[in-house]
């Protein structure tokens, strides 16, 4: 039965590829939006969990920062209460680390003319309280300091966004899932409507409902699988592009290791969810039309 239904599905797709294709494109589009949202959401959770964001500071130096200036800044930092590890990252080190973070593209990147990265002094505080506004202001006032970025600020910003995302996220995810179900449902519904005469003939010939229904359910399954692969590829491309862009344009060279893609388990869960949704929506569409036919 399944083999015969699969053959029938292939025939249906061949005859009616434009409807199926538009279904795949629309489903993929919804999935890309959903996938990007979920990825951002997961990354927010990931980022807020990172320890360095708790009480981590990056002092960005400008071109005027001489060795003497850097020494003064380092001494000030060392004297801060509860200061932990202090690390200086030079422009050259930043560039090397960036190149090393790109596995296969290293040779190509070595030949590129990068914009100059600023030197950075990074340090952490071994306490829960952050630097006071006064301490930060004094740090910023040093000659040669371009900016001071605090992990806590970043974390707080992320948390604010995270709270909004939590609120909007559920609504958006439900909305996009409903959209996806409706797209697959409508694609299958149109496909069945276009073959309504054929279905009537099959019913007159004594075909059971499952014989008629299965090819369409499999079509919904195929739409789900192809859309999943397509949208995952698009999301991965966008992810690589954005991460590379961020890394090239700012000094946050380690972002590639911070921002992550879906894990295999998450991809598996998404795949299973999508397959179930595909089967569910095509089953609904097929059932509606077949039951409507009073033959």
């Amino acid at each position: 039965m399944i083999a015969s239904a699969f053959g029938q599905t292939i025939e249906n797709l061949r005859e009616n590829y434009s409807t199926t294709l538009s279904g795949i494109v629309m489903t993929s589009f919804s999935l890309v939006i959903l996938g990007i949202f979920v990825l951002v959401y997961l990354n927010l959770i990931h980022l807020t969990q990172l320890a360095f964001l708790k009480n981590h500071y990056s002092v960005f130096l400008n071109d005027q920062a001489s060795v003497a200036h850097q020494k003064e800044i380092s001494i000030y930092i060392k004297d801060l209460p509860d200061v932990g590890e202090i690390k200086k990252i030079s422009s050259a080190e930043a560039k090397t680390q960036l190149i090393e973070s790109f596995d296969e593209a290293q040779e190509m990147l070595k030949k590129l003319d990068f914009p100059k990265f600023p030197d950075i002094i990074e340090f952490v505080l071994n306490r829960s309280e952050p630097l006071t506004a006064n301490e930060i202001a004094r740090l910023k006032a040093f000659e040669g300091v371009q900016d001071v970025i605090t992990g806590r600020e970043t974390r707080d910003q992320i948390n604010t966004f995270f709270n909004i995302a939590n609120f909007v996220g559920l609504f958006l995810i439900v909305l996009l899932i409903v959209c996806m179900v409706l797209i697959i449902y409508n694609t299958i519904h149109i496909a069945i409507r276009m073959r309504i005469k054929e279905i009537e003939i099959l019913k007159i010939l004594g075909a059971p409902s499952e014989f008629i229904r299965w090819p369409y359910i499999l079509e919904g399954f195929l739409i789900a699988v192809v859309s999943y692969i397509l949208s995952l590829a698009i999301i991965y491309f966008l992810y690589s592009f954005v991460v590379a862009g961020i890394t090239f344009n700012t000094a946050t060279y380690s972002i590639r290791t911070v921002v992550r893609f879906f894990s295999p388990l998450e991809m598996g869960n998404l795949f299973l969810t999508l397959i179930l949704l595909g089967l569910f929506s095509s089953f609904l569409a097929a059932n509606k039309v077949i039951n409507y036919l009073d033959v």
Binding site: M1, S4, L202, L205, G206, A207, P208, F211
Partner: peptide
């Protein structure tokens, strides 16, 4: 082939 397919 349809009637034969229906009969499995």
């Amino acid at each position: 082939a349809i009637p034969l397919q229906i009969k499995g």
